[in-house]
């Protein structure tokens, strides 16, 4: 199991090794992150078979479909959940937080 920080870029799609969660990186932020789900590093969406991994119990609070998450220490980070799951998102030991939506009026 890899624990390296994934080089994030806008448009990168990642999947959890411990649950159904999938995300897309909307904005990568200003420094490298070790993006985890359920406490275990996420893999590229097209990566083949993950090794046997055990989630970290306190990082199994869920990720919500369609919600945006950001980093408490870098609000330039934006990660969108495209498939929700049981694991929660973190940068290593730092939990990502739900980003408040500022709704725009429908325009087309």
């Amino acid at each position: 199991m890899s624990t390296e920080a994934v080089g994030l870029r806008a448009g990168l799609r990642l999947k959890s090794q411990v649950c159904a969660t999938e995300v897309i990186v909307v904005r990568p932020g200003t420094r490298p992150l070790s993006l985890c789900c359920g406490g275990v590093p996420m893999l590229g969406r097209d990566a083949s078979g993950a090794a046997e991994t055990t989630p970290v119990a306190e990082r199994m609070r869920g990720s919500l479909l369609g919600k945006r998450y950001t980093h408490p220490g870098d609000d330039a980070v934006e990660v969108l959940v495209t498939v929700g799951g049981a694991g929660s998102l973190s940068d290593g030991e730092t939990d990502l937080v739900l980003k408040e939506a500022k709704p725009l009026p429908a325009s087309d």
Partner: peptide, 16 residues
């Protein structure tokens, strides 16, 4: 695809 996705993700909240 990248242009249209940026537009939608930047201006619309999912399931809103």
């Amino acid at each position: 695809h990248s242009h249209l996705l940026s537009y939608v993700l930047g201006t619309v909240e999912f399931a809103s």
